[in-house]
């Protein structure tokens, strides 16, 4: 008799070292009953996609505050596709201007959370999106 858990990878792509939001969110997801894998700073999109695939997570949450999101987030989406893991949902967060959000969504990012978003919004979004 197994127990099901939502599994989430929280990742910091690029060189940005601001991990307050990522860590706070990781804890909030944990407290909402999810298993959260956190891999630390300076992850390449290749590392993130490989980790997400091996860990078979439902969701990858990408956090970037350096402005490199347009380069990095869609790359993760592409690589997941290459791994045959395009059922994994990719979410983004950080200082992301409104006009970039639509670009990211067009390129496969399911949702983007910007400064001021509450962790509960993210928790709810993940729960809604993942059907266990």
């Amino acid at each position: 008799m197994g127990e099901q858990r939502i599994r989430v990878l929280i990742a910091k792509p690029g060189l940005d070292g601001h991990d307050r939001g990522a860590k706070v969110l990781a804890r909030a997801l944990r407290d909402a009953g999810m298993e959260v894998i956190y891999t630390g700073l300076r992850q390449t999109p290749e590392q993130i996609a490989a980790t997400a695939t091996q860990e078979d997570v439902h969701v990858v949450g990408l956090s970037c505050l350096s402005g490199a999101h347009l380069e990095l987030f869609p790359r993760v989406v592409e690589l997941l596709k290459e791994h045959g893991a395009d059922d994994i949902l990719v979410l983004g967060g950080g200082t992301i201007p409104a006009e970039d959000i639509s670009v990211l969504k067009e390129r496969g990012v399911a949702e983007v959370f910007t400064p001021g978003a509450s962790t509960q919004e993210v928790v709810e979004f993940v729960k809604r999106s993942v059907n266990l």
Partner: peptide, 16 residues
């Protein structure tokens, strides 16, 4: 909560 923070991979980044 039944949730977990799984952080062991941080020390295995190069193997990813």
């Amino acid at each position: 909560s039944g949730g977990a923070l799984l952080g062991d991979r941080i020390r295995m980044q190069e193997l990813a």
